[in-house]
Write a protein that binds this DNA or RNA. Structure first.
Length: 808
RNA sequence: GCGGAUGUGGCGAAAUUGGCAGACGCGCUAGACUUAGGAUCUAGUGUCUUCGACAUGGGAGUUCGAGUCUCUUCAUCCGCACCA
């Protein structure tokens, strides 16, 4: 079979007939299948692209044949660092390399034979798209969800750019692995923390992998407790956050983060030198060493004291870098008896340790005792359990104006400014008189200029482009300057799924009337590496836009599937540095898209992935050939029209195959679905290995086989269908439906165990009762022989499964 | 340290959710047809020395029955990492 000819023939037909165009008339029956769009960093599709897009396209085709109106768009996440880094290295402009890569990838994706509707294509680096990214920025800004603040940020010394917390891995830059240091810059933030609680709660509604939900949950990091106020000798006040207010009577010191605003004021003359030296030391080592939990608990005494609000006791104020300025209040109470870290700290610095919690049941409770228990040495709260006291103590302080119940989240606001060229410009200008002013919506897009020197030198490249930077204030008309930064590319990808169904709208980002019908995405497919970034940001955008009145749904992705990762043949992640990257190109050349796609679906568990191994691909070609012979045979098959036991048997396999394959496809279990189809083919071969066969029945069986295979090998199936006389695309036909009547058998085989060991097989009528099955089993000669003189104590009959005879 | 997973033949993997372990395929071994075979077809293929026994990382347990549930332990992978 000439697969190259077949593949190009059908690809052309599909395109000419616009077979995969979404039909808006059927919008009520829509099914939105979305694969995470590609990042055009390389010129070619790699094995991972094929693994993501091939099987999920088969899934879309399957759903189409299940009667759904499929919307399956494709686009490109085209802004970003790699294109810019590539440009710095080669001198090729990011826009040129990106657009060129996109053109190649488009061609390749078409050659894959994926049923994308290209009419809705998106490229995030084009003004007709990023105009609306900017528009969304302005809506968030107007709603108070975008704001600027000076904050310590992660600064990659090599990329010369700011990184989000999520992009810092082990204190190093996610992309280049260089050391990340702290630097203060004024940056734009999105207030994702406003949605922390809802982002957490709504996870329960989602049909997502549990692991991904757990990761988001942890990332959001809700913890409930209370804030407690301390008054210093100087009269200054500060609050600490605690989840264990029940241990308050055990406070023997407090610690402020080195960056805490009160530190300077509270430091006494005697301690000034030590405190300054310590702060300097922290600024140097921060974030790099802080990643180790086993690190020694360092700190310095400020010289000042404050009063424990629960008992008035005077306790020293320290600073220590184990306290994070960015979480809670940037200050903690020290209870060495009941917290591991405080215990270490107190031991090291010779601070008192006072027990205020005992175990509930008198079990061993050596210090530090961090479990829940019962209060002691706690005045009126003695005898209360941790659960009671942690609320009661805060409530009491609340009455005195010295505390409040409080919930904290680890989630931080999303830093979106990037000191980079190749990204979406920020639509804000700065005016000497009016300050920070949003660009008028009518003036969008703020176009990214082409001629820019983007060599990294610590400043934003756009800053050096005077004709870009200089503008007029939208409010007062005086000369003003633009924001020189661009947005994190995750901003572009946080709403692209909303743009797709209305991709060419030049009046709005999207028409709510359309989007509210087309969304949420019914099946979203992509890598697990996005669990805490893209997938969280997209949820945030959806909720924010809903609250701004543009959407009427709460969640963007109803159901999510992560495909596994294809590793190198050595079992490691494919990487250029390791030299284990497999290029699929040779395979495609040699075997074609269909065989390659089918191989990817059959050789791996889709959700698991695994090491690359090419050995099975020949067998797929053989299998397709095997099917082809069956298809060709339909043209000259001779036979009768009897429908006897052999036909009945094959019909059983046929229908159970349909049933199983349908079930497996729905849960992305492609490898088992294909295994079932192979079994069916084996059964057909067994059937035709006879003198006489039922010709009409045979043709029906083969027709079903072709339909079953259509999502898996789309081009070949079209060809087979044509050979069999089909005049329209096989994808306009319905997937075969299981005829339940065919699954009814007169009798079936059943295993008989004696003391859980299989001793015989019996055949029983399908409608036999448990008692009848038991009688048949006990009267079976093999069973009798195996039982010998033993007494039957008990017989367990599980119809359709087995019989177990307990005997002695 | 915390959270989540995974561990089954020579290999990729299945197992209707507590019911015949190893489906399907690769590989391998025979054989048939062939001038030829990297084509096709047939048979075999978890391990052990046979009747039979033993087998799902190791060890316990619950059960008539455990790959599946419980406890414990080891190994590997992923995510988070002083979050008060």
């Amino acid at each position: 079979m000439d697969f190259k000819k077949i593949e190009s023939k059908w690809q052309k037909k599909w395109e000419d007939e616009k077979l995969y165009s979404f039909n808006k008339k059927n919008i009520d029956n829509k099914y939105y299948v979305l694969e995470m769009f590609s990042y055009p960093s390389g010129a070619k599709l790699h094995a991972g692209h094929w693994y993501n897009y091939g099987p999920s396209d088969s899934y879309a085709r399957f759903m189409r044949m299940q009667g759904k109106e499929i919307f399956q768009p494709m686009g490109f996440d085209a802004f970003g660092l790699p294109a810019e880094n590539y440009a710095i290295k080669t001198g090729i402009h990011p826009q040129d390399s990106t657009l060129k890569n996109i053109a190649t990838m488009e061609k390749q994706l078409k050659a894959m034979g994926a049923s994308f509707d290209w009419d809705y294509e998106i490229k995030t680096c084009m003004p007709d798209y990023y105009k609306w990214t900017q528009w969304i920025f302005l809506q968030l800004y107007k709603a108070g969800l975008a704001y600027r603040k000076k904050a310590p940020v992660n600064w990659c010394t090599s990329c010369k750019t700011v990184l989000a917390n999520e992009q810092v891995i082990d204190g190093k830059c996610e992309r280049c692995g260089s050391q990340v240091i702290q630097k203060d810059l004024t940056q734009w933030f999105f207030k994702i923390t406003n949605y922390a609680e809802e982002l957490l709660q709504d996870l329960d509604k989602l049909d997502w992998p549990e692991k991904t939900k757990a990761m988001q949950k942890h990332w959001i990091g809700k913890s409930t407790g209370g804030e407690i106020e301390f008054e210093c000798e100087s009269g200054d006040k500060f609050r600490v956050f605690t989840t264990r207010a029940d241990t308050s009577f055990g406070i023997t010191y407090v610690v402020l983060a080195p960056e805490h605003p009160l530190v300077d004021k509270l430091t006494t003359k005697e301690q000034r030198a030590a405190v300054e030296a310590y702060k300097e030391e922290c600024a140097k080592t921060k974030e790099i060493d802080r990643l180790s939990t086993t690190r020694e608990k360092t700190g310095v005494f400020t010289g000042s004291y404050c009063f424990n609000p629960v008992n008035g006791k005077k306790v020293p104020i320290w600073i220590g870098d184990y306290v994070l300025a960015s979480y809670g209040t940037g200050a903690v109470m020290g209870v060495p008896a009941h917290d591991d870290r405080d215990y270490d700290f107190a031991k090291k610095h010779g601070i008192d340790i006072i027990r205020v919690i005992k175990s509930k049941d008198g079990s061993p409770d050596d210090l530090p005792y961090c479990e829940y228990g019962v209060c002691c040495n706690s005045g009126e709260f003695d005898g209360m359990t941790t659960e009671e006291a942690k609320v009661a103590i805060v409530k009491k302080l609340e009455k005195e104006g010295k505390g409040a119940l409080k919930t904290n989240y680890r989630l931080r606001d999303w830093l979106v400014s990037r000191q980079r060229y190749w990204g979406c410009p920020i639509p804000i200008v700065y005016c000497d008189d009016c300050g920070e002013v949003p660009v008028n919506e009518a003036d969008l897009p703020v176009k990214l200029p082409y001629n820019v020197d983007f060599t990294p030198d610590g400043a934003s490249p756009l800053l050096k482009c005077e004709e870009y930077m200089n503008t007029v204030c939208p409010k007062c008309g005086k000369p003003a300057r633009r924001d020189p930064d661009t947005m994190d590319t995750f901003v572009c990808s946080s709403w692209y799924f909303l743009r797709y169904p209305d991709a060419h709208n030049d009046k709005m980002a999207f028409d709510p009337a359309i989007i509210n019908k087309m969304l949420p995405v019914d099946k979203y497919i992509g890598g697990a590496e996005h669990a805490c970034m893209h997938l969280l940001y997209a949820r945030f955008f959806t909720k924010a836009l809903r609250d701004l009145g543009y959407l009427n749904f709460d969640e963007p992705f109803k159901s999510l599937v992560h495909q596994g990762t294809i590793l190198g043949p050595d079992g490691f992640k494919m990487s250029k540095s390791r030299g284990n990257v497999v290029s699929p190109d040779d395979c495609i050349q040699k075997y074609g898209s269909d065989a390659f796609r089918m191989y990817l679906m059959f050789g791996f568990s889709y959700i698991e992935g695994g090491p690359w191994n090419e050995s099975g691909i020949d067998s797929i070609v053989k299998f397709i050939d095997r099917v082809e012979r069956l298809v060709v045979k339909t043209k000259d098959v001779q036979g009768n029209d009897t429908f006897a036991s052999r036909e009945k048997e094959l019909n059983f396999v046929r229908n159970s195959t349909i049933k199983r394959v349908t079930e497996d496809f729905k849960i992305f279990s492609f490898n088992t679905a294909i295994a079932r189809i192979m079994e069916y083919v084996n059964a057909i071969y067994k059937y035709i290995d006879a003198e006489e066969i039922n010709a009409k029945f045979y043709k029906d069986c083969i027709k079903d086989l072709v339909l079953l295979l259509a999502p898996v090998i789309p081009h070949t199936a079209e060809e087979f269908n044509e050979i069999m006389g089909g005049t329209t695309s096989v994808f306009n036909e319905a997937y075969p439906k299981c005829d339940e009547k065919a699954l009814v058998k007169d009798e079936y085989e059943l295993a008989v165990q004696i003391n859980s060991k299989i001793k015989a097989k019996i055949v029983v009528p399908s409608n036999a009762s448990q008692q009848e099955i038991q009688d048949i089993a006990l009267n079976d000669s093999q069973v009798k022989a195996a039982l010998g003189a033993q007494n039957v104590l008990k017989v367990i009959v599980i119809p359709k499964r087995l019989v177990n005879i307990v005997a002695k």
